[in-house]
Amino acid sequence: MTKEWTPRIVAFFCNWCTYTAADLAGVSRLKYASNVRVIRLMCSGRVDPQFVLEALAKGADGVLIGGCHPGDCHYVEGNYKMLRRFELLKRLLADMGIEERRVRLEWISAAEGEKVKTVINEMTEQIKKLGPLGMPQKFETWDKEIEHLAVEVQARDAAQGPCPTRAAQLKPMEAVHA
């Protein structure tokens, strides 16, 4: 990578409010950071936590979810259902050591083109401050370490028979988490 790093943000916008608001931002020729790539879903309720994890795993530095304001969901309350899942997801991310601020949920109505601009700019700035998440690279190093470990264990097994203690195995793993 020769280019200067800039955040990669994946956004999931519901068709009826937030996606339309982003269209409005376009029609109004508002200008905002180009870091966000929007994926259209019919409703924010469709956002599977796995989408967020997948995006982070595949190299996103942040994920933005946009839905209709509470009470305004085109499908009555898909956004509330999402909100519940989102709270759980945030805990999960915290457990994984991923900063909460990398994942953001915003209610943006079809009329709020301005808000699309503000949220995207804010989020881009915030993630710039947090720096790259670099999950794919982390996966790579982890894979390498595990591979390395496997080789080491095999070598030891060959030399002195099956593994004597658990502790011996755990040590290199801790290094991974550090």
Binding site: M42, C43, G45, R46, V47, D48, K81, M82, R85
Partner: peptide, 18 residues
């Protein structure tokens, strides 16, 4: 809307087009 799809723990619901 796909809300059920997004929350099925066994990923056994499919939404056409999404």
């Amino acid at each position: 809307c796909g809300t059920c799809v997004g929350s099925c723990p066994s990923a056994s619901i499919v939404q056409n087009l999404f």
